[in-house]
Design a protein around this nucleic acid. Structure first.
Lengths: 348, 348
DNA sequence: TGCTAGCAGTCAATTCTACTGAGTGCCAAG
DNA sequence: CTTGGCACTCAGTAGAATTGACTGCTAGCA
């Protein structure tokens, strides 16, 4: 019995050559047609020179191992999340079509304006290019030095701290004190804050006055607010492009509604994206997502890194039935351009 | 023939009492059930003491006049846009249920934070309350005096002008010059701008230096950018709450996608809202909307006015089949609260 | 031992038919 | 002017029959 079996039917993550080809063909076909894929379709599509019957028996094995499922007895097969996962993991880095590459290049060559605008437009562009929903995350700005600080009086107990960073970012924070402030004191506090903080970053420690007068209190409060460890992701900005694509690409009203509901909650979107980044995986497929609601979605994410630090991310959200190869390449390309764009800004 | 006919069957915008009641009943029933309404349903619902047959002949007349339509021969009637319009125009100002009134009151009693946050939360609240998509417009801030101006160097030809207003608004503008700027010049220009603009509003004229050196040029450019007549609605902020409700309330994937696509384009949303406000009408029904895509939608808008000036708006977007009375009351209530909220801020 | 052709079986999707029932329009009588 | 009654229309539904795209299995072949 123990000959040199070329088809060991292991339970491990490896499939023999032919099974892999078949799985690949099923994924490709299903992505294309949205229909269950039958054995004969596979024989026509894949470069395999075997009969449908052979494919069938292989598919039985693939199903037993959890890579495929049958919607019902007399239907073809559809990839499971595990099937997609295998497909994605064994994907050789795809190349992006010249036309799309050109398109992205042109976009970044012509885009102007402030950071927010660039990110927003990137999201829109990526969504149009891919026909799926795009998410762009802009990192917080704690690295840039502070150019100017301004304390603005809103009402007796309520000031607004406006901080301008050298990269053009502006942050606003509410500052609340428990005494009635004097107008001149605010001006004075503003002046002191400027002297104190100009040129520093939010990571730097500064010497705050320890006096107990109103001005000193305001200064202390302001610095505290600004330096406060942000509840995760505060300051992260989220730009979503093409949320209407959800209606096209997902099926089932409930699904559409649920996914849209998630996109409305920026914090959820941020953590969803960061989750993917954290594990250093670029793709989450279906049930791999933490959120149950996204069980029918695939998320592709690429980080934007400047000087080795992750300052943002580019993501795509679509159904699991998606052109992984192309879209992964697209996402990567856009993130690289974005990285270059920001590094370019830095240099100048 | 010329008796004292109490039913003159005019083509004018007036319907006799009974027709009006019937139309009202049809609208009410259809809003409730989403089904075409038959004659007997009307007799049960309306307080009319007439037989279905009578109602039928009246409905024929209403159909001839364009207030109702039949989806097909053997179905009940459905209101047309014109029918809804008549209904809305003859609606006596509805009262809002105590529970909802309470809810809104509680919300505004507890809401804190900066203007943007308040508007954003208002949109979310209104959407949850109504179960439709809410739109909140925050007006531009040209009325508040300037507290501080800061010119930030981004690259050799490229500065960012950050303007802080006394109400806490912050505006950013790009300033581009055609010479290589010196770092010190930027600081000097910043200083001069502050001296020049502090305490003024963007509507005030200021005396700019006419010298031809770099600093003066930057100052002139900056003031010009800041005072530039904004392309309509620049600076308007749009907050959309509950876009996922679109998926629930509109039927037909195409419809959902189209409406979502509109909501993505902030400028379009702004002009849509302003269009309703401009004509001093609170409601646009179906084909009354400029945008064809919104032919199956109703838009309800109420302005937010502070000191007689319209500074924003509150809107709801739903299908034409909507509870006009209640939702108009809701929208009005929220806009009044918002008005009071901002006036309260002003006073302090 | 692995591949393949062929065959019987399964079952979603489609088509057809008949039927139901909500609702109309019209008419004749009150 | 209103109303009851009646014939008619037609979308929607339910059931039966048909189709066809698959499969699993088995027996024969290299």
């Amino acid at each position: 019995m123990a000959k040199q079996t070329p088809t060991p039917d292991t339970n491990h993550s490896n499939l023999d050559q032919r099974k892999a080809s078949i799985l690949e063909a099923v994924v490709a076909e299903h992505v294309d047609t949205a229909q269950p894929v039958g054995s004969s379709a596979v024989t026509q599509n894949a470069k395999l020179e075997v009969s449908p019957a052979t494919v069938r028996s292989e598919m039985v094995a693939l199903e037993r191992q959890g890579y495929l499922v049958q919607p019902h007895t007399s239907a073809g097969r559809v990839p499971t999340d595990k099937g997609y996962r295998y497909f994605v993991d064994h994907l050789k880095a795809g190349k992006l079509g010249a036309a799309k590459q050109q398109h992205i290049g042109d976009f970044f060559a012509s885009v102007r304006g402030e950071v927010e605008d660039v990110l927003e437009q990137t999201a829109t562009m990526l969504s149009k290019l891919s026909n799926y929903t795009a998410v762009v995350l802009g990192g917080s700005s704690s690295t840039a030095p502070i150019v100017s600080v301004q304390l603005v009086n809103l009402d007796a107990h309520h000031q607004l701290l406006v901080t301008v960073f050298s990269d053009g970012t502006v942050l606003k924070h509410s500052v609340i004190v428990d005494f009635e402030v004097d107008h001149n004191d605010v001006a004075e506090a503003s002046k002191q804050l400027n002297a104190l903080l100009h040129g520093t970053t939010t990571a730097d420690k500064v010497q705050v006055p320890s006096r107990q007068d109103d001005v000193a209190t305001m200064v202390r409060e302001s610095v505290a607010v600004l330096h406060a460890e942000r509840p995760t992701h505060e300051g992260e900005q989220v730009f979503i492009g093409g949320s209407s694509k959800v209606a096209e690409s997902m099926d089932g009203v409930d699904n559409v509604r649920n996914v849209l509901a998630i996109l409305e909650q920026e914090l959820v979107v941020v953590s969803m994206i960061e989750e993917v980044l954290a594990e250093d995986v670029a793709v989450k497929i279906g049930s791999e997502n933490q959120l149950e609601t996204l069980a029918s979605c695939a998320v592709i994410v690429a980080p934007v890194t400047v000087e080795g630090e992750t300052v943002g991310a580019v993501g795509l959200l679509g159904p699991t039935r998606i052109k992984y190869s192309e879209l992964m390449a697209t996402t990567r390309t856009v993130s690289e351009h974005l990285t270059r764009h920001f590094e370019g800004d830095k240099e100048r």
